[in-house]
């Protein structure tokens, strides 16, 4: 009786979640690889086998290159702001000098993280608006109207305007992750350093950074992976425009698939996205050690 119970019940308990994961996460993944080798549209029930031609097209496609470079820009800038700057910010917030004001600041910095991206993006449409936008009005106010630009309509600034919005929204998130990591550092380390007469900056590099190394790495990978996948921000703000100047891989995939109805080619783009992010994800598993926690 006990033996039977031990086999049946665990299986039944875990079955629904395995079904969910299998059907909605793993099968689509495999299906996507399969789709990459076919040419099809939403409203044609038949798929035409085309071999590797979608991938050949992919590597010759200038827009894919533009998008990929934009994703990389996204990643680099996000690492600088969301990882480097956030770590400094977290260190300052955890410093005893600011312990009165820190809890409130933590919440304030975190607010944008909680707000839906469509609200944020619509808000930034107002901020970047060339006629009444807050940014240009502000520049005018401080006498820098020569710097005012149609931020989202200018091919050189559009992608940076999109990236800037992401930084604004996400710094609080990574900062919070660093705060948690910093709180785990044994306080004795700092006390000892204090006695040695080490300054704040030396303490930061000699104690904080090495002690949060793991979090630093994980946060960096989250940020990079997020940057390689980014869809919502450019989709809502610019839809990849003007021209293709703020295109990212995910937006391009969406447009090929759901706007131009080249589902096969869109699947090939998705495969590229998968390969790029899988590399980072594998590193993340290795480093963060999720799963081997016993």
């Amino acid at each position: 009786m006990i033996a039977r119970r031990n086999r049946m019940i665990p299986a039944l308990f875990i079955l629904p979640s395995l079904l969910f994961l299998g059907i909605f996460i793993y099968i689509p993944l495999v299906q996507n690889f399969y789709n990459s080798f076919f040419d099809f549209s939403v409203f044609s029930p038949t798929k035409e086998y085309v071999g590797f031609s979608a991938f050949e097209q992919l590597f010759a496609d200038k827009v894919v290159m533009t998008a990929f470079i934009n994703n990389i820009k996204y990643a680099i800038i996000s690492v600088i702001f969301q990882v480097a700057f956030a770590l400094v910010l977290a260190t300052i917030l955890e410093d005893k000098l600011f312990r009165r004001i820190a809890p409130m600041l933590r919440i304030i910095y975190f607010i944008p993280v909680m707000i839906s991206i469509s609200v944020i993006a619509l808000l930034f449409n107002f901020i970047y608006n060339p006629q009444m936008g807050l940014l240009n009005s502000f520049l005018e106010l401080v006498g820098l109207e020569s710097l005012a630009l149609p931020w989202l309509g200018n091919a050189t600034t559009s992608i940076y305007a999109v990236i800037a919005m992401s930084q604004w929204q996400s710094i609080g998130f990574i900062t919070m992750l660093f705060i948690v990591a910093i709180q785990k550092i044994p306080k004795e380390l700092y006390e000892a350093a204090n006695i040695d007469g080490a300054g704040k900056i030396r303490q930061f590099f000699n104690i904080t950074v090495p002690q949060v190394k793991e979090a630093l790495f994980v946060n960096m990978l989250i940020t990079i992976t997020g940057a390689m996948l980014v869809f919502n921000e450019p989709y809502i703000l610019t839809n990849g425009g003007p021209g293709t100047s703020s295109m990212t891989l995910s937006v391009y995939m969406y447009q090929q698939g759901f706007f131009k109805d080249n589902m096969g080619y869109a699947s090939a783009v998705a495969t590229l996205i998968f390969v790029v992010t899988a590399i980072f994800a594998l590193i993340q598993i290795k480093v963060s050690g999720t799963g081997k926690d016993e």
């Binding site: 200018n154 091919a155 003007p242 100047s245 706007f259």
Partner: peptide
């Protein structure tokens, strides 16, 4: 065809911004 139209439409944006 929508794919062709898209080339012209995005192309129009690029023309306006001097990118093509």
């Amino acid at each position: 065809n929508i794919n062709v139209a898209d080339v012209f439409m995005r192309g129009g944006q690029s023309l306006a911004t001097g990118q093509a």
